[in-house]
Design a protein around this nucleic acid. Structure first.
Lengths: 210, 210, 210, 210
DNA sequence: GATGAATGAGCTTTCATTCAT
DNA sequence: AATGAATGAAAGCTCATTCAT
């Protein structure tokens, strides 16, 4: 949250937050190309207000992404702090992931959004902090013997990001599809005789690149 | 392939195929909203020709989806026929999945595309055939004791569909990220003491619904 | 200066003047269509303040034009009073004209501004007073034999107005282009055998019309 | 006229010409900021057509300017070739100038247009050719003794450009104001004892700069 | 049958003006 | 009274689709 965002008048602040919330929701539902007007309407403001706050669509996308990443990061830190074992923290993250869907989906699903976020320092910082947090958890889990040794933090991140996505086309029949997938995935990560993995562990650093 | 498509003159046929191929490629690269003109250009024809063959964007999306599904179906049948065990067939499908990415991504990633395909009988037929084939493989694998009993074909389909998606933002550092994910997923499906799954197995029928 | 403008509190008065000065400057630099917000910013006030003082853009344009015309009028009177001959007064006016550029350009260059000023009684009064003053000078010059007889005050006004405009696109190489043009123009007005002029002298009255 | 402009289908060509003609007229009447829609309407086409031919307003402005300059250049060459003396050529140019108003005004009056044209090689070429032509005429006139020696081609160009502009605000009472101004100007240029000019002659090269 | 030109609706963005603080 | 936030109308530009060549 930059200084400029703190200095807003009370009502302006409220509007700004409504806009970001609306954008998050509408982006999740219909992708990052929805008419700005629809976002404005959802937020209960005029387009003009939206544009006063965010000079163009990209700025809005960045704002949504930043808030989302920040929230996930907070979640990860909480899990690490509160759970007794690293494995439990991982389980909690994976299990909760479907709540975070809408938040992060934006950054993952749309080519356009990805392109925009590449250039955004703040998003990058959140992402790096998140990877660092995850790295600590994964290493701890491997140290405690709960996670197989032949994977890296990058592998876990990729796996989590896949689960993060809405199990798509499916009108989830059991309403538990996400959880089931998460558990299956965790079972794959478990430390015990498993299939040999091709290549080498993908680390957190590998993902910094992009 | 409908009757009308069979009756085309050789050159018209060639045009049609170029268009679908171009659309598949361009959709994969830039999403299902790319300008029709760009598709036409990529295919080396004028927009007029494109519209003569496909009355609107939806028709084109349907055509691309049908071909993609048909190809995946063929692949699945081949795997089932040629591999010695059901487990091997499953491995082959999962391993090959990244080749199919571009093909099916369309149907999975875009809200819009999904909406369009819902109403398409032919796509539905391919999808149902595919689910039937997968169901046979999964049941066989469970019968032969290689796949855990507490999952259904729907669970497998969902998992496969997740892996099908490009492992996202990542400029794959090992170029094997997809394979690694696939193996981890298969390890999760393996028949052996695993974590208890919430809910009930998701069947193929569960997915027919929509 | 109307009654309402006299009654302003000192600070309000200061604001008003800053606004008009800013408008004059910004109009000159970027035409009469600049965003009101930019004018307000240049004046160091909020848009709200600007609008409190001038109900809309037209009012502001009128105010700027009035002040500019008033200034030119004062200049002309001073020249007539202080110079020994009418010719000298004319020379002084023409020579100084480039100082007045920014002031009057507004009224001359922009179709829109012209339209607005047509209906403004006060601007008209200044303009008429200016034409009367100029008429006196021209007639006196003709009486003293320094200006050719076949031209009217209207001709002179038109010539002056042309010179008033910035000699266009040119990054004036000698920084004297305006002066040179003015002198050449005066040479054309000189009383001595010249080319015959088409039509009849254009008088001051001719210009009242619009 | 570039190759691309030659290859247009007959009807497209016709439309293109109508658009440029309409733009010239509308620009002259209302400045370079008129709604594109109005230009399209005047040309009898849809906005889309306009934009297909000219990707944005700047491209259109460039096209209009090029054609206008080309026309003036042709005029100057014709005058030089057909008139018996250089002085007559000059008179003809000055006298005809009001026909050229609309054509060149665009380049002179609007700050925006000027900025755009600065970067346009083709416009620059026409302008340079025009200056070269004018230079030949002015030097010839000075050689034949009809034009004073203390001025340069640049001075003449500036003077002409002033006259080129519509004598503005005036609903020309004699309908001859332009001609009268032109003659007065020519009288100022005449070779005979005149007032001393400040600075040095402004040459054609001086004007190349911008 | 193929082509690419024309159309016009739709979306983004800007800015004059109003109004809450 | 001053400020700057909100609004919405208007203009730029893009692209799906139709149609003349």
């Amino acid at each position: 949250m930059t200084a400029s965002e703190t200095r807003l008048r009370a009502d302006a602040r409220r509007n700004r937050d409504q806009i970001v919330a609306a954008a998050r929701q509408v982006f999740a539902a219909a992708g990052p190309d929805v008419p700005m007007e629809e976002i404005a309407r959802t937020a209960g403001v005029g387009v003009g207000t939206l544009y006063r706050r965010f000079p163009d669509r990209e700025a809005l996308i960045r704002a949504v992404a930043r808030e989302s990443f920040a929230q996930v990061l907070a979640d990860a830190r909480e899990a690490a702090a509160e759970e007794p074992t690293a494995w439990d923290a991982l389980v909690r993250l994976a299990g909760r992931s479907h709540q975070l869907q809408a938040s992060v989906q934006l950054a993952l699903v749309s080519e356009r959004a990805r392109e925009i976020l590449k250039g955004d320092r703040q998003t990058a910082e959140f992402r790096d902090a998140l990877l660092a947090e995850l790295d600590a958890i994964v290493r701890a889990a491997q140290a405690e013997g709960s996670v197989r040794a032949d994977i890296g933090t990058g592998d876990v991140a990729i796996l989590l990001s896949l689960v993060l996505r809405r199990p798509s086309a499916v009108d989830d029949p059991t309403l538990l599809a996400s959880e089931r997938v998460a558990v299956l995935m965790l079972d794959g990560l478990r430390a015990r005789p498993g299939s040999p993995l091709p290549g080498r562990p993908i680390t957190g650093e590998d993902l910094q690149i992009h």
